[in-house]
Design a protein around this nucleic acid. Structure first.
Lengths: 110, 110
DNA sequence: ATCGTATATCGTAATTTTACGATGAAAATA
DNA sequence: TATTTTCATCGTAAAATTACGATATACGAT
């Protein structure tokens, strides 16, 4: 990747790609599903449910947090991870808009 | 990545992650948008619209094809890329299901 | 004050991704 | 037949991703 020319893509494209990258690993999807379905929101809980080391789960949590999809609140010795409500809404709307944009055109050539 | 433990995640998670990875780069999103909005479906057309080398575009097209989202039909010296109708529908339904699953639970802890 | 628990971070290694130019292959054109 | 056009692939390099164990930090409990 010689020089990043990413600024030549538009904001929507970059944002959608970032969100997509955030969920481009089965472990991160699994983490989001766990957060959505259970009250297990501590790193330890998630580590118990997934076949990965604690440090790896922590890394994935960091990636999801960087993307803005989740936030982490420190509760003493632990950190409670949950969805970032506002950003989750943005995630969904950006992804849905993208999915809707990607469709077969009227005059499909093949 | 010592040993791939991906088989310990379920099929849906793996499929969704694969699709997400396919659109996790602005160039690939841009390519899909071009295919959706114009009749430019040749590698050369796309190369003209994006700030990347022809070989790089070809690589991105290959990635989208591997994910099944598009197909390529050889037309003499050129290749016409378009959406794979059936797989595109799967892409959309898998992604939408995933997005719907990811939601704030009733008893949010924080 | 010490010990145990939970998690983030560091160091490291293997793999994958991204990008480019150069080259090759195959069809169309001169 | 020779040339041009179009695209895929190769070779390569830089960077990012993924994973782990080890360690550091910080809080709570004893």
């Amino acid at each position: 990747m010689a020089i990043t020319k990413a600024q030549l893509f538009n904001e929507k494209q970059i944002k959608a790609a970032e969100f997509a990258k955030a969920i481009s690993h089965p472990a991160r999807i699994a983490i989001l599903q766990i957060l959505a379905k259970t009250n297990a929101c501590y790193c330890g809980d998630i580590t118990e449910e997934l076949p990965l080391a604690q440090s790896t789960i922590s890394q994935h949590l960091k990636a999801l947090k960087s993307a803005g999809i989740i936030k982490g609140e420190i509760e003493g010795v632990r950190t409670c991870y949950c969805f970032d409500e506002e950003n989750l809404a943005e995630f969904k709307s950006v992804m849905e808009a993208m999915i809707n944009e990607i469709s077969i055109p009227d005059s499909s050539c093949c």
